[in-house]
């Protein structure tokens, strides 16, 4: 049985798509058969970050509407074997995602032997986000170190606990993981940003990892490469740790204290 993981946040622009791409790629790099679904219908950009936008012919909504079959719509990643992308439609709106339709696609992915299905949620607290999280078994809560983002994550956690399929069926609750992204330790020290401890204190869920603010993220997504493939990128390394921890490894948190300034930098300050 596949594990369905939703990447969600409530607030927009916090790094959900960046995380979905890196995380799914990380799982596939470890040999796990992984599909990643773009639920952001109307604003598709997962395919851009995955670098496969020119190969999109059919999309998620086409499959739901029976206009294409899953084989036609799934795009196989060219870099790793076990990774497939199901892109979103650019021309529909989020209402095209019906619960029966999504359920049908997920069961077909199960039948194809996928181990992990990563759902990249749209922002907001409405239908698009609800349907992306409804079927989830686990959730990556992507949060930036600022009050409004933490508040929105809290709301999404409330929805996971009350409006998901697991909640409605009274099953074991969705397993929640906190991911703090765009973390800038020096701005935390100067009091501009919330510290990791403050965030875990408010949200009260276990922290899977911290991704530092890092210019390599934008560079990587502009060139269609999930940042986890950039070995020299600090964000990429942090995502690698996150995948390891998710798979049960015990790894210390990195990049949570301000970077030491090099000797020369200090001299010329």
């Amino acid at each position: 049985m596949a594990t369905i993981i939703v990447v969600t946040s409530g607030k927009g622009g916090v790094g959900k798509t960046t995380t979905s791409a890196a995380f799914a790629m990380g799982l596939a790099l470890r040999g796990h058969r992984t599909a990643i679904i773009d639920f952001d219908v109307g604003l598709r950009n997962l395919d851009l970050i995955m670098g496969c936008e020119r190969r999109v012919v059919y999309d998620f909504v086409n499959v739901i509407n029976g206009e294409a079959n899953l084989n036609q719509a799934l795009i196989k990643d060219k870099r790793v074997d076990e990774l497939y992308i199901l892109p979103a439609s650019q021309t529909r709106n989020k209402d095209a995602l019906t619960s029966e339709g999504v359920n049908k696609v997920l069961s077909e992915l199960f039948e194809r032997g996928f181990e992990y299905i990563v759902c990249d949620s749209p922002a907001g607290i409405e239908h698009g986000a609800f349907i992306a999280l409804y079927f989830a078994d686990e959730a990556l809560i992507v949060t930036n170190p600022e009050v409004s983002s933490v508040r929105d994550s809290d709301r999404i956690l409330g929805i996971l606990a009350s409006k998901s399929r697991r909640a409605e069926n009274g099953a074991e609750p969705i397993k929640e993981h906190l991911l703090v992204t765009r973390y800038d330790p020096s701005r935390v020290n100067s009091g501009d940003m919330l510290a990791m401890e403050d965030i875990t204190d408010i949200l009260g869920i276990p922290i899977l990892g911290v991704i530092p603010e890092c210019p390599s993220v934008l560079q990587a997504s502009n060139s269609g490469v999930p940042v986890i493939l950039e070995d020299s990128s600090r964000a990429g390394q942090a995502y690698t740790d996150i995948v390891g921890r998710f798979l049960g490894e015990n790894l210390p948190h990195r990049f949570t204290t301000p970077e030491k300034r090099g000797f020369l930098k200090r001299l010329f300050r």
Partner: peptide, 8 residues
């Protein structure tokens, strides 16, 4: 026994 979250 679970947290009561924003919006709940």
């Amino acid at each position: 026994s679970r947290p009561v979250r924003s919006g709940q």
